[in-house]
Design a binder for these strands. Structure first.
Length: 228
DNA sequence: ACCCAGGGTCATA
DNA sequence: TATGACCATGGG
């Protein structure tokens, strides 16, 4: 599996869309908090919750590790699922704080850190990979729904590997440039999300019929993805 | 009124 | 291991 298709698509999207500036956070801790808050919710909603936490002086893992989840429920309300997410945030904050903080977590080998994160309540595969890449500086590929949707239609990802997260993650990881670092992968994922937003919605049966494709780079990127 | 959004957990078969 | 229910707000 040559990585040339991935490189070509990356270069094309970067030239066309420009740098996406992900992850939108001032600090690694803020990134981690945002990763939990944005789960299954538009980023704008998560951003409001982050602002409220900041105003309350609770936008840090040390602070979140010492409060009861119910304290932040009204603060993170705009992010939706506030009862669950309040417990998730405290669980993540407690774990990382007890483990020596973000720096100590980042110092461990990526597979170790990943397994460790997956063991924390509220951290699934996608959130774990996002944290690894954007907060810890590891070369992790985030194989989320947008990435799978786009790469499937572009022909980079075989249909047999597009359903589950872990399968897609392995298939995509094998096609990445060997020298891809955290910055490259972070931009890669952000670009895929940017394109994916412009494409047809999940319920649309056949993407060829989706008018959104005419307005975006679909025809061009699809051709490049197939090595035209 | 409906669909969707930068998921994950838990109970069930 | 693979589904389905559930969590809940905000924008189009």
């Amino acid at each position: 599996m040559p990585d040339s298709a991935v490189r070509a698509l990356y270069d094309h999207l970067l030239a066309r869309l420009g740098p996406q500036g992900w992850w939108p956070a001032d600090t690694a801790e803020e990134m981690i908090i945002g990763a939990v808050l944005t789960q299954a919710v538009a980023w704008q909603n998560a951003a409001r919750a982050i602002d409220r936490l900041r105003e309350a002086g609770l936008l840090s893992l040390a602070a979140l590790a010492e409060i009861e989840p119910t304290i932040i429920v009204p603060l993170i309300r705009p992010a939706g699922y506030f009862n669950v997410k309040a417990r998730k945030l405290v669980a993540v904050a407690c774990h990382i704080t007890a483990g020596g903080g973000v720096a100590a977590l980042a110092a461990r080998p990526m597979p170790i850190a990943r397994q460790e994160l997956l063991g924390v309540f509220g951290v699934g595969p996608e959130t774990a990979d996002a944290i690894l890449c954007y907060a810890l500086g590891h070369p992790a590929m985030v194989a989320d729904t947008y990435a799978r949707r786009v790469l499937l239609r572009v022909g980079v990802l075989p249909a047999s590997a597009a359903t589950g997260y872990e399968v897609a993650r392995r298939a995509l990881g094998a096609q990445l440039p060997p020298d891809a670092d955290a910055a490259w992968l972070g931009e890669w994922h952000a670009l895929l999300v940017a394109v994916g937003k412009d494409w047809c919605r999940p319920r649309e049966p056949r993407c060829e019929d989706c008018p959104a494709h005419a307005r975006c780079a679909y025809a061009h990127t699809a051709a490049m993805g197939r090595g035209r």
